[in-house]
């Protein structure tokens, strides 16, 4: 009880730290970019706004002292996943400019489900972690050194299994997208 009282006295909603202010600002930008991603009618713009959202998340990881995850986020998501999505948009002959049929007919239902999910999740999360603070002082918890040590000391087997999974996915993607010759059909 006294511990909770002292931590509550040390932190407070009314005296946010610089990290908290930065986190909230970047979080607002990320959320706005995500909203534009799912609502815009221009397909290529959706992919470009996705870059903003994922880059904002990389900054959030940096603020949470998870450096390595942040750089992985930039490399994998911003660098390759979005490029893959843009390739997909171009290969499926997505229209440049506004496309009137970007949203399907069940938009009101989707909005209701999403609002209900957001309300329920935010209520539960805020109620559960009202008096919990992350201690960000001390050495960074996600530096490349630390992550490399734990990844290759404690998580070697999942890591290797994952590399086999990636190989299988790569081969599967190649097999799926290969054009069959006419006589093989």
């Amino acid at each position: 009880m006294t511990l909770a009282a002292t931590t509550a006295a040390a932190h407070g909603f009314l005296s946010p730290t610089g990290v908290e202010v930065a986190f909230v600002l970047v979080g607002l930008a990320t959320l706005g970019a995500a909203l534009v991603t799912v609502t815009t009618r221009q397909l290529v713009h959706a992919a470009l706004w996705l870059v903003v959202a994922l880059g904002g998340l990389a900054v959030e990881y940096l603020l949470l002292t998870a450096e390595f995850i942040a750089w992985v986020q930039v490399l994998i998501y911003v660098g390759s996943v979005v490029v893959l999505l843009l390739f997909g948009l171009m290969l499926t002959k997505a229209p440049i400019g506004r496309s009137p049929d970007a949203d399907s007919g069940n938009r009101p239902v989707a909005l209701a489900v999403a609002l209900a999910a957001a309300a329920a999740l935010v209520w539960v999360v805020v109620d559960a972690f009202r008096t919990t603070w992350i201690d960000l002082d001390g050495p960074a918890q996600g530096s490349t050194d630390v992550i490399g040590q734990i990844l290759f000391r404690h998580w070697v087997l999942p890591f290797e299994a994952l590399s086999v999974l990636l190989l299988a996915a790569l081969v599967g993607a190649i097999v799926l997208s290969r054009k069959k010759k006419e006589d093989e059909r």
Binding site: L31, V38, V126
Partner: peptide, 29 residues
């Protein structure tokens, strides 16, 4: 940092993604 900030941001991002999955018509979106 208050733990509620990242948790709330994650919940809202999840809801935005949920809306996109349900409302979009193009498979790539």
């Amino acid at each position: 940092m208050h733990l509620a900030y990242p948790a709330v941001l994650a919940a809202l991002l999840f809801a935005v993604g949920l809306y996109g999955v349900l409302a979009r018509r193009n498979a790539i979106l």
